[in-house]
Design a protein around this nucleic acid. Structure first.
Lengths: 143, 143
DNA sequence: CATGTCTTTGAGAACGGGTATCATTATCGT
DNA sequence: ACGATAATGATACCCGTTCTCAAAGACATG
């Protein structure tokens, strides 16, 4: 599935952008292997760790393209660092719990929450396209 | 009510910090007069606009103290700027809708959403103390 | 009220994530 | 293989936030 996302993302990037590139490919492949959000710096370190000489600017450029195409979700956990994670084709997605104590980030899913969010989207004059939910507190270990 | 929050916040700050200060008082009073979130820069400009010579560092210091005491909520709308708003004593609070087009920020309340969030807090191993919800899309005017 | 101690304050330097710049490199249709 | 042109990497830059430190202010005491 992750492989699937990477291939799909690369194909769509090429369709809108016209030309390929090694840095972009490295970022997409690295991102497709993860299952939760990563900061640009983490992606940069991860890709560099494989011996590829990519610039941090290229990481941001790739992420911007992915974000514009809806292939990646930008997540803000409140620490001033943007994180990114693949948007899976099925539409299912998760939210995040952040431990105030140890800083650990854990994903969670909750259908009832999604329903409540959908209702809000429909009920107001807004045209809601995305929603971010972050829970904060103490995790099981730190409690 | 706003007046009430300011007085309460100042009293509690003094209790934990031991000593008063003009900058802190100015920030708290300015913040207490608002009804939605403000950035540190907006608070700084607002206080300065009243002719008070306060430093931006003092604004951040006051906000940090208020945040530690749970008197203010830190809100991250995803644009890299932290915003702050008073936490009202009743416990009622709202979330935010951000227009991707014009950047307008509107508060909204939704009891059903709160219920869903409460359920999550209870159901997992976490000890949830706070939750942030941000909806993004096109507002009524920009649609 | 005057004094002394200790906290707060304001200005500006420092820091860090993210973006812009620009010469160089790589891609891909021809 | 060639050439037009987009992508890349290093680095300078921007801006929000934090740190530093001397000066000013607050409070207890005499």
């Amino acid at each position: 599935m992750a492989q699937r996302w990477s291939d799909d993302a690369l194909a769509r990037l090429r369709a809108t952008s016209g030309r390929g590139g090694a840095a972009r490919r490295a970022v997409v492949e690295y991102l497709g292997r993860q299952n939760c959000c990563l900061s640009a710096q983490e992606i940069y370190d991860g890709v560099r760790g494989r011996g590829l000489r990519v610039g941090i600017a290229s990481v941001y450029r790739a992420l911007e393209g992915l974000d514009r195409g809806g292939l990646v979700q930008r997540i803000d956990l409140g620490d001033g660092v943007a994180r990114f994670e693949p948007v899976l084709p099925g539409g299912e997605h998760h939210h995040h719990f952040v431990c105030d104590d140890c800083g650990k980030v854990e994903p969670f899913e909750d259908p009832a929450l999604e329903v409540a969010l959908e209702r809000i989207a429909g009920g107001r004059g807004y045209d809601v396209e995305a929603h971010d939910v972050v829970l904060r507190g103490a995790c099981g270990e730190c409690r």
